[in-house]
Simulated assay, not measured.
Amino acid sequence: MAKQLPLHFEFRANQTFNNFYPGDNQEIITHLQNCIAGTGEQQIFLWGKHGQGKSHLLQACCCQAYILGLSSFFFSFSNSALPDPIMLGGLDEIDVVCFDNIEHLAGNPTWEMAFFNFFNQHRDRGHKLILSAHRAPNDIAIQLPDLKTRLNWGLALKIQPLADHDRIAALTFKANQMGFEISPKAGRFLLTHYARDLASLWALLEKLDQASLAAKRKLTIPFLKQIMDDNHV
């Protein structure tokens, strides 16, 4: 594979292991931390529904690698046009590579072959590969048999959704991380009247924080209703 400078990416400082609310996923965090430290699996495949924190955990892996003095790289594929596979050039030299939404490569023969070649070279160097998708490895429609086999190497871990009591605890945890308070009662109200996926809830917390600061008011349920009505949430 021709060597080139990989695409630049930025760490998201608010997406670390310390500010991820684990719920029933603490064992997954431990496996990821051991992988980065070189005391666990060389390859991990995370899967689960949208909004359960896969992207956060992959970013956290890169942050952890940085702390340990390792090189790292994160890229999230989308269902829009794929980038040129030449972006893989040089990634085989990176200590920790994280690819999010890997299922979007399925059915693209050029990308499947390019990723297969990258996979082999990266693994031969003893580096760590962490992948994520909305489905388990066997359920992804990869056409290249050898690549499909390799996606099943290592450890496949399903992210467990948070129960309602954990979602409320996660809201409280996230709000504390952001520097403000939200009561369990207010958290229950948001779950009932707004959204249940964490990505939407985190975005809402940003709006609530700004509104609370601007109005210099605590997040009572009447105030939450006012904010949501004013923002057409």
Rank of each mutant, 00 (worst) to 15 (best):
Ile36Thr: 07
Ile28Gln: 02
Val96Trp: 03
Arg123Phe: 13
Cys63Lys: 10
Leu68Cys: 09
Glu112Gln: 09
Met1Thr: 13
Thr220Val: 01
Ile102Gly: 00
Lys49Ala: 15
Asn14Trp: 03
Ile168Phe: 05
Gly107Ser: 05
Thr16His: 01
Lys218Phe: 03
Asp229Met: 13
Ile36Arg: 06
His165Val: 14
Leu157Arg: 07
Ala170Val: 03
Leu213Ala: 10
Gly90Leu: 05
Cys35Trp: 05
Asn19Leu: 08
Leu68Gly: 02
Pro83Gly: 09
Asp209Cys: 10
Gly154Gln: 08
Ala195Glu: 12
Gln33Asp: 03
Phe119Tyr: 15
Ala81Asn: 13
Asp84Gly: 02
Ala141Leu: 11
Leu131His: 05
Ile28Ser: 00
Arg188Ile: 11
Asn120Gln: 12
Asp197Val: 09
Pro137Ile: 05
Asp100Met: 06
Lys174Cys: 08
His104Val: 09
Arg135Cys: 03
Ile36Phe: 08
Thr172His: 01
Leu204Cys: 13
His193Val: 04
Leu208Lys: 05
Leu70Phe: 14
Cys98Ile: 13
Cys61Lys: 06
Thr172Ser: 13
Thr192Met: 09
Asn152Glu: 15
Val97Thr: 13
Asn138Ser: 13
Cys61Ala: 15
Arg150Ala: 07
Pro222Tyr: 07
Tyr66Trp: 07
Ile67Trp: 03
Ser72Cys: 15
Phe77Ala: 01
Ile182Tyr: 01
Glu103Asp: 14
Arg12Ser: 10
Leu191Gly: 13
Gln177Tyr: 04
Cys35Asp: 04
Leu131Asp: 09
Leu91Ala: 06
Ser78Leu: 05
Gln33Asn: 09
Ala65Gly: 10
Gln59Thr: 07
Glu112His: 03
Ala13Val: 02
Leu46Asp: 07
Leu147Asp: 03
Gln121Gly: 04
Leu171Pro: 02
Phe115Arg: 00
Leu147Glu: 05
Ser71Glu: 13
Pro85Gln: 08
Thr110Ser: 08
Gly51Thr: 01
Thr172Pro: 00
Asn138Pro: 00
Asp164His: 12
Cys35Arg: 01
Leu147Arg: 03
Leu147Pro: 01
Asn79Gln: 14
Ala81Cys: 04
Ala211Asp: 06
Lys148Cys: 09
Lys128Asp: 02
Gln26His: 12
Asn108Asp: 12
Leu7Lys: 07
Tyr66Ile: 02
Ser72Glu: 04
Glu93Leu: 12
Ala133Trp: 05
Trp202Ser: 09
Thr149Ser: 15
Ala170Cys: 13
Gly40Glu: 06
Ser71His: 12
Gln226Tyr: 09
Ala13Ile: 04
Leu155Asn: 05
Tyr66Pro: 00
